[in-house]
Amino acid sequence: TETYETTDETEARKIAEELKRRGLTFRIERHGTTIRIESD
């Protein structure tokens, strides 16, 4: 499991693209301005 936290929408998108490219599944949670991406 890898966890990323960012407040930057663009960075979050880049992380999501990278995880997809590596064939990982992940979920995105939003907590206020923080975007949390957690891979399975």
Results as ranks from 00 to 15, higher is better:
E17V: 07
T10H: 13
A12I: 04
R30I: 14
D8Q: 03
D40Q: 13
G23S: 02
S39T: 15
D40N: 13
E29M: 12
H31W: 11
T1Y: 13
T3Y: 14
T3R: 13
T10D: 15
R27C: 13
G32K: 03
R36F: 07
R36Q: 03
T6P: 02
G23M: 03
E18Q: 09
T33S: 12
R36H: 06
R21Y: 05
E38D: 05
D8S: 13
E18A: 10
L19A: 01
L24E: 05
T10N: 15
L24C: 12
E9P: 14
E2V: 14
T10V: 13
A16P: 00
H31Y: 12
G32D: 04
T7D: 12
T25P: 07
S39R: 07
E2P: 05
S39M: 13
T1S: 11
R22F: 03
L24K: 09
K20R: 14
E9G: 04
L19I: 03
S39K: 06
T34P: 00
Y4F: 09
F26W: 04
D40I: 15
L19S: 00
R21F: 06
R36C: 08
L24F: 08
A12V: 05
R22T: 02
T10R: 10
I35Q: 00
G32Y: 02
E29T: 15
D40S: 14
D8F: 04
R36G: 01
E38L: 15
G32F: 03
K14M: 12
T7I: 06
T3W: 15
E5A: 05
R30Y: 15
E11A: 07
E9W: 14
S39E: 05
R22N: 04
L19F: 09
E38N: 07
I28K: 02
I37D: 00
I15F: 08
E2R: 12
T33E: 11
I37S: 00
G32L: 03
I15K: 04
R21V: 06
Y4V: 03
G32H: 04
I15S: 01
E38R: 11
L24G: 02
R13Q: 13
T34M: 13
S39P: 07
I37W: 00
G32V: 01
H31G: 03
E38T: 15
T33H: 09
I28C: 12
T1I: 14
I15A: 02
A12T: 01
F26S: 03
H31N: 12
T1M: 10
L19K: 01
E11H: 07
R21K: 11
H31E: 09
H31R: 09
T34C: 11
I35W: 14
F26R: 01
T7A: 06
I15E: 01
T25H: 14
T7G: 06
E38K: 11
T3M: 12
F26N: 02
S39Q: 07
R27A: 04
E5L: 11
A12Q: 01
G23Y: 02
S39A: 15
T25D: 09
R27H: 10
F26G: 03
A16T: 14
G23R: 03
L24I: 13
G32C: 04
E29P: 00
L24N: 04
D8P: 00
L19N: 00
R30F: 13
R27F: 09
T34N: 06
I35K: 00
I37C: 01
L19Y: 04
E9R: 06
Y4D: 01
R13L: 14
T3G: 04
E2H: 13
R30G: 03
T33P: 09
T25G: 10
H31A: 07
A12R: 01
G23P: 00
T10G: 13
T33A: 13
E18V: 06
E2G: 08
I28H: 01
R13E: 12
E17I: 08
E2S: 08
T10P: 03
L19E: 01
E29N: 07
T6E: 02
I35N: 00
R13I: 13
T33F: 10
R13F: 12
E11S: 05
D40T: 15
T1F: 14
E11K: 06
I37A: 00
K20I: 13
G32N: 04
R27E: 04
R30P: 02
T6N: 01
G23H: 04
S39G: 05
E29H: 11
G32T: 02
T1D: 05
T7R: 06
R21C: 09
T7S: 10
H31K: 09
R30S: 05
T1V: 13
L19M: 06
K14R: 14
R21L: 08
T6Y: 03
A16N: 01
R13D: 09
R13H: 11
E38P: 00
R30H: 10
E11P: 00
L19W: 06
R36V: 09
R21S: 09
G23T: 01
D40F: 15
T25K: 14
L24Y: 09
R22G: 02
T7F: 06
I37H: 00
K14T: 08
E18S: 11
H31P: 01
T34L: 14
R22W: 04
R13N: 11
L24T: 04
T7E: 13
G23L: 02
Y4W: 14
L24Q: 06
F26K: 02
E9V: 07
T10L: 13
I28V: 10
R27Y: 07
T33M: 11
E29R: 08
E11G: 02
E9S: 05
T10F: 11
K20P: 00
I15N: 01
E17Y: 10
A12S: 03
T6A: 04
H31C: 10
T6W: 01
T1W: 14
R13P: 01
D40V: 14
T33W: 07
I35Y: 10
E29S: 14
D40P: 15
R22Y: 03
R30E: 04
K20Y: 10
T25E: 09
R27Q: 06
K14I: 10
A12N: 00
A12D: 00
E38G: 03
E18W: 15
S39D: 02
K14L: 12
S39C: 15
T6F: 07
T7K: 08
R36K: 08
A12F: 05
E5Q: 07
E17P: 00
T34H: 07
D8H: 04
T1C: 09
A12K: 01
T7L: 06
I28N: 01
R30K: 09
L24P: 02
G23E: 03
K14F: 09
R36D: 00
E2N: 10
T33R: 08
I28T: 06
R27P: 02
Y4M: 02
T6G: 03
E2T: 13
S39N: 03
T25C: 14
I37V: 04
E2F: 15
R36Y: 09
I37E: 00
T7P: 03
H31V: 12
E2M: 14
T1A: 11
E5G: 01
H31L: 11
R21T: 06
R13Y: 12
T3E: 05
I28Q: 03
T10Y: 10
T34A: 05
F26T: 04
E11D: 05
E2Y: 15
T34S: 06
T7H: 08
F26Q: 02
T25A: 11
T1E: 07
R22I: 03
T25I: 09
E38S: 14
K14W: 10
G32E: 05
R30A: 05
A16R: 05
I28Y: 05
E5N: 05
G23N: 05
R13G: 07
A16W: 09
A16V: 15
K20Q: 11
R22P: 01
E17F: 08
I15V: 05
D40M: 15
I35E: 01
E5P: 01
T6V: 10
R21P: 00
E2W: 15
H31F: 12
E38C: 12
R22E: 03
T34K: 08
R27L: 07
T3I: 15
T25Y: 10
E18H: 09
R27V: 09
T10Q: 13
R27M: 05
E11Y: 08
E9Y: 09
R13V: 10
I15T: 02
G32W: 02
E9T: 05
T33Q: 12
G32S: 03
E9A: 09
E18I: 08
D40Y: 15
T6I: 06
R22C: 08
F26H: 04
T34R: 07
T3V: 15
E2I: 15
T10A: 14
G32Q: 03
